[in-house]
Design a protein around this nucleic acid. Structure first.
Length: 506
RNA sequence: CGGGAAGUGGCUCAGCCUGGUAGAGCACAGCGUUCGGGACGCUGGGGUCGUCGGUUCAAAUCCGACCUUCCCGACCA
């Protein structure tokens, strides 16, 4: 027997967190790097997870009156030039299409030909092209609100990519709405933020902080940006969804005007909001352990795998019959809004088979052998427990308890994550303590350190810049549910009325 | 884009300093023995050593350029 380490993934989180992240993804079969710079291939196990996330989100959107639509991948360059701050923020890091044909070159290679009169930008986000449609769809207050979402891919030519967290191309949804009043638009902005928080907490088992971004972290062209922020196991913050109140800035840029009930012409008030495949990165880094990823049952690519165990051909036929009948029975069981997703793995690959599923993060593993059949039972392992922590349970009881069992796993994951976040969220008022929290002991190979610091901030961007330069720490958000409290800025000591969340971030 | 490291069968890597046309472990296929177990034995398939160019009788090995990946930083809508 080949000896392996105590854990399936090497290095462990403690040893090298960034490397652990890469290895966990590789071992899980969620995704892999592609031949194209900075772009990933999402494999079936990862795409199933994404589909479960999207269908949950999509249902929540539609429940609030959102309709899906689709807009072009290409945006005329001039569109991006319409909103001044938007130009500032998006001028860089875009893929640009300049030609529309390939011709055979002198060496037999293909060379671009047919130069476009106006270059097309591969959408980094679609405010401008959707705004163009909105400007034609809207002419009266009776046309409002317009509530649109699109599921799409976008391209941002990031300099440093990381699978799921920041890839050149990624999948997301972007919602765009237009309203007759500022108040209604703001309400929509916050409603969508709530939906993201609900998705994170109830489906992904990620505790998040809802908050407002500071001016320097705001979406270019937005009046106000809100986000949900989660803590990863290296104690860095990850923004898992954003919702923007755009005021009338984009309406003005795209000419989205309407006549109000008083017959006066007005610009519409717009919002935009998005969540992406990055959420999968958040899920991996929040729940993963040194044996791989752990999928929360509400979105898991599959809920349970049946692992038949047999020796003789005779055993095999009995075990397979039992396994298949159990699989059929399980597939009928409802779990929240779906049916149970059941896998049967009858490969004869010894113990490696069990480890494969551990690394894939499936919530429940069920072994079925002659011994179990004799007792009309199954042998059950939970991914949120140790890999040898398995129990025998009567088949009937197992079937009856399954949804409840999955909910226990779901709850356990959420509570573990919340406990971790709370343990590393520190209320800090002294500057030295703040600096030591965010300074690693080994600068060349930083250990896991830091956390969320709840500290006062005077409101000046000078202090933000200073802390970012000296510590690499930024204000992740100003929590929405924030008690008013008098204090002194952690950086400059000027008076402050509330605490904000400081952290290192992805 | 700046600093650092690296690119050799699917994966992890050795070989490179001291040039002579490829190795290991894992994975994979077949057979046998096992088996509630990340099993063992035997046999076998698979790589023109990131790309292009240079030096040389000869290059994975030396030189140059480029590409890509990873880490840190800047950037991150």
């Amino acid at each position: 027997m080949k000896k392996r380490g105590d854990s399936a993934i090497s290095p462990t989180r403690e040893e090298d967190y960034p490397q652990w992240y890469q290895q966990v993804i590789k071992a899980s079969g969620l995704a892999e790097r592609s031949a194209v710079r900075g772009c990933m291939v999402i494999r079936p196990w990862g795409y199933a997870l994404w589909e479960n996330i999207t269908s949950a989100l999509d249902a929540m959107f539609k429940a609030t009156g959102i309709q899906n639509a689709y807009f072009p991948l290409f945006i005329p360059l001039s569109f991006l030039e319409k909103e001044a701050e938007h130009v500032e923020g998006f001028a860089k890091e875009c893929a640009v299409v300049t030609h529309h044909r390939l011709e055979k070159g002198p060496d037999g290679d293909l060379v671009p030909a047919g130069r476009l009169q106006e270059p097309l930008v591969v959408r980094p986000t679609s405010e401008t092209i959707i705004g163009d449609s909105f400007s034609r769809w809207i002419s009266s207050y009776r046309d409002l609100p317009v509530l649109i979402n699109q599921w799409a891919n976008v391209v941002r030519w990031e300099l440093r990519t990381r699978i799921f967290l920041r890839t050149s191309e990624f999948l997301w949804q972007e919602g765009h709405t237009a309203h007759a009043t500022s108040g209604e638009a703001l309400e929509r902005t916050l409603l969508m933020l709530d939906i993201y928080a609900r998705l994170a907490e109830q489906y992904l088992a990620l505790p998040v902080i809802k908050g407002r971004k500071t001016a320097s972290e705001r979406f270019p062209g937005a009046v106000d940006t809100f986000s949900i922020e989660a803590m990863m196991q290296d104690r860095k913050a990850l923004q898992a969804g954003t919702s923007h109140f755009l005021g009338q800035n984009f309406a003005r840029a795209s000419g989205i005007k309407f006549q109000n009930a008083e017959e006066k012409e007005e610009y519409a008030w717009t919002t935009s909001w998005g969540a992406s495949t990055r959420m999968i990165g958040a899920l991996i880094m929040t729940h993963g352990d040194d044996d791989g990823i752990i999928l929360p049952p509400r979105v898991a690519s599959a809920h349970v795998v049946l692992l038949p165990i047999y020796r003789s051909a005779q055993d095999k036929s009995a075990v397979m019959t039992y396994t298949e009948s159990l699989a059929r029975e399980l597939k009928e069981i409802r779990y929240h809004e779906t049916l149970l997703r059941v896998q049967v793995d009858d490969r004869d690959t010894g113990g490696a088979r069990n480890w494969d599923w551990i690394k894939k993060g499936i919530p429940l593993r069920v072994e079925i052998g002659p011994r179990d059949i004799a007792q009309n039972a199954v042998y059950l392992g939970r991914r949120d427990k140790g890999n040898t922590d398995k129990i025998s349970i009567k088949r009937d009881a197992f079937v009856a308890k399954l949804p409840q069992l999955l909910d226990e796993v779901q709850k356990n994951l959420y509570e573990r994550a919340l406990t971790y976040r709370n343990a590393h969220t520190i209320t800090l008022d002294d500057r030295d303590g703040f600096y030591s929290l965010f300074t690693p002991n080994n600068a060349d190979h930083p250990e896991i350190h830091g956390g969320f610091a709840l500290s006062h901030w005077c409101g000046s961007s000078a202090c933000e810049v200073k802390l970012k330069e000296e510590l690499g720490v930024t204000i992740r958000c100003i929590p929405l549910e924030n008690p008013s409290e008098n204090g002194a800025c952690i950086c400059c000591g000027q008076p402050s009325k509330e605490r904000v969340v400081f952290a290192k971030a992805y």
